[in-house]
Amino acid sequence: MSTAFDVAVEVSLRDGIADPEGLTIERALPALGFSGVSGVRVGKSLRFVVEASDEDEARTQVEAMCERFLANPVIEDVDISLSPAS
């Protein structure tokens, strides 16, 4: 029997890779009166549902998707969160 899992994948630029989008936002914030903000990084977030026999299998599937398709390991890191679908 398979279970549905809610999946959240956060894709972010790897440490050490310049993030021109994050930098531009960081530079814009003081002009709007928000001071003291640093380390802005921009990424993307994917949400979907996976059917699998258990959480380990679901995670293995999602990791494979990220490796092959959802992220580019040359420049991006991923953070995967899984929970039984509500």
């Binding site: 630029l13 890779i17 310049a18 021109p20 989008e21 531009t24 580019n72 040359v74 420049i75």
Partner: peptide, 17 residues
């Protein structure tokens, strides 16, 4: 070609956006 791994590296947003 980089995504297909026929060439190394990656292309990202231009500096200065």
């Amino acid at each position: 070609l980089t995504e297909a791994q026929l060439l190394p590296g990656a292309l990202y947003k231009n500096r200065g956006l």
